[in-house]
């Protein structure tokens, strides 16, 4: 509990300096909203001519886009510092993190607030909400609770993948998070139903870097779309696995940390 409270303390410390650049914040927020609006226009235009994509309708795909936007938004709003890990390693910034009594990964991830995450969270929530209003699900309290668990799990998966791929910077000497950024982009593939891709991509997005568990599998379960919908129930397990793997990779990386020469 103290760890969580302290996390928000560390993150919140940057909030005031963020407000100094109000115009910047507005531009970034507007750009993020614009990107999501373009996505929605694209989906609407596509599904105006096509009833479904492998059994997925406009609303169900919109919900996947929303889930990815939401998970990404949480990642940038609360854990944006992860993206500076490569830089922190390269400049020896971890030296001081290592001598403070607080988890190093959390000191790193709280080093910045990605305020554009806020608009992504809002847009994602609107997309999911609108989609839910238009799909036919027999809601029960249990299913609703499960839905919340799935949503939290999908956020955990996204953040864990961010941490794991950024922690690769302990092995690569680059001062920019090339690898993590490339993987983040690959993750965009998982906004579409996994079934449209060739086997190799299915394996990559479903198993190796399980981006498909952020939107596709849990939503397939909730909306009862496609075959093997039970896989969606594995989402919390996948989330636990991803979080564990990410922490392990980070810890292994930390042992390799060599600081920076003077």
């Amino acid at each position: 509990m103290r760890t969580v409270r302290l996390y928000f303390r560390l993150l919140g410390a940057h909030f005031r300096s963020l407000l100094e650049y109000e115009a910047d914040f507005l531009i970034l927020a507007a750009a993020t909203v614009l990107m999501q609006v373009v996505n929605i226009v694209f989906l609407a235009a596509l599904f105006a001519k096509v009833p479904a994509l492998n059994g997925w309708t406009f609303w169900s795909v919109l919900m996947m886009f929303g889930a990815v936007a939401l998970a990404e938004g949480v990642g940038s709003l609360f854990f944006d510092g992860m993206w500076s890990l490569a830089w922190q390693i390269n400049r020896g910034q971890l030296d001081y993190f290592l001598v403070r009594p607080y988890p190093v990964a959390l000191q790193s991830s709280s080093a910045a607030i990605g305020i554009n995450g806020l608009s992504n969270i809002i847009m994602g929530a609107i997309m999911i909400g609108t989609a839910l209003a238009h799909v036919d699900v027999a809601w029960t309290p249990w299913l609703a609770l499960l839905g919340v668990v799935l949503l939290i799990s999908s956020v955990v998966i996204k953040v864990s993948i961010n941490l794991a791929t950024n922690a690769v910077s302990f092995w690569l000497a680059s001062p920019t998070p090339m690898f993590a950024f490339a993987m983040h982009q690959v993750g965009d593939l998982a906004r579409f139903p996994l079934t449209i891709y060739p086997l190799a991509l299915k394996a990559a997005l479903g198993v190796v870097l399980p981006f498909a568990f952020i939107g596709f599998f849990p939503i397939a379960f909730l909306l009862d779309t496609g075959q093997s919908r039970w896989i969606g129930l594995l989402t919390p397990l996948v989330a636990a696995y991803c979080a564990g793997a990410a922490i392990l990779i980070f810890k292994r990386g930390l042992r390799r940390y060599e600081s920076a020469g003077n």
């Binding site: 910047d24 531009i27 507007a30 750009a31 614009l34 990107m35 609006v37 554009n116």
Partner: peptide, 12 residues
């Protein structure tokens, strides 16, 4: 000051 936002908007 924010090149990133401008770039994102342009890309979209």
């Amino acid at each position: 000051q924010n090149f990133m936002g401008v770039q994102w908007a342009r890309l979209a």
